[in-house]
Amino acid sequence: MSLQKKQKKDDTSFWDKRRGKIHTAKGGWIIGEAVYNQGYSMLDDLVGKKTFFQVLMLNATGRLPDKRLAEWLEALFVCLSWPDARIWCNQIGSLAGTMNSTPVAAVSAGILAADSRMYGPGTQTIGASFILEALRKKNIGKTAETIVEEFSQTCQGAVPTIPGFVRPLTRGDERVIAIDQVTEKLGFARGPHLDLAFEIEKVMLKKYQEGINLLGYSAAFLCDQALTARQQYRVVSAMVNSGVHACYAEAADNPPESFFPFQCKDINFQGHAPRPVPKKKLKK
């Protein structure tokens, strides 16, 4: 048996069709006519009539949500808007502020930092994927106990690091109470993903004293709203934005390098002791 011989000429027809053109189903600006956005005229149908978060969801998912879902998403962003300069992404805003970087650079850096495996928007996909898979298991008859047990078998530590049910720094999440109140106020009924998330929380609390966190709640809620894991990641991508702003602004309004300065001895150097640089070997 031999591998097929390489074609003499590469087939580039896929790219040839696209060369020199941009094909889009999103929309764009026809000068003098309108700015179209997925079936809407931006200036006639959206500006002043729909909220920023409705348009954000339209742009990210292709679906214009009703106002209350956009309000819920906005509340989620507010939950992530802590002005605490110890939080990693926020501290990057402070560090950028103390070096007189621009607010755009600072906030972009903060948002990039939150694209993390531990917190922030970077975890949304794994949070959503977990609860989607968990519901699939429940629908074939598995209990929340079994779901947790199966997940814990894939983990090394004493506590299974189920996305959305273990939080850095603390046990428990006060933001869940706040966002749940928003859910209720806006008249959303709990869907099957959120119901299951709370069943899993009961197991986690009983066995490991770990409760649901904002990721667990938001991923389940957005699954109930029929957003895929990919769509969730997109709509929440900038959600730490305003907390970074707060930390940036305070540092930028103070003298440069005055934010949390370190002396040399504040770094615990554990590397090689001083040594001379060896002479370069002469080339033969």
Binding site: W88, C89, Q91, I92, L95, A96, T98, M99, N100, S101, T102, A105, A106, S108, A109, L112, A113, A114, D115, S116, R117, M118, Y119, G122, P168, P256, E257
Partner: peptide, 26 residues
Amino acid sequence: NASVSKTNSAHLLPIALSVLSGTHLG
């Protein structure tokens, strides 16, 4: 900071360079 908090490693340099982009020692 970004690295220890499990930021995507491809973002480490852009983050640091953004902080190094300013008018104070940047």
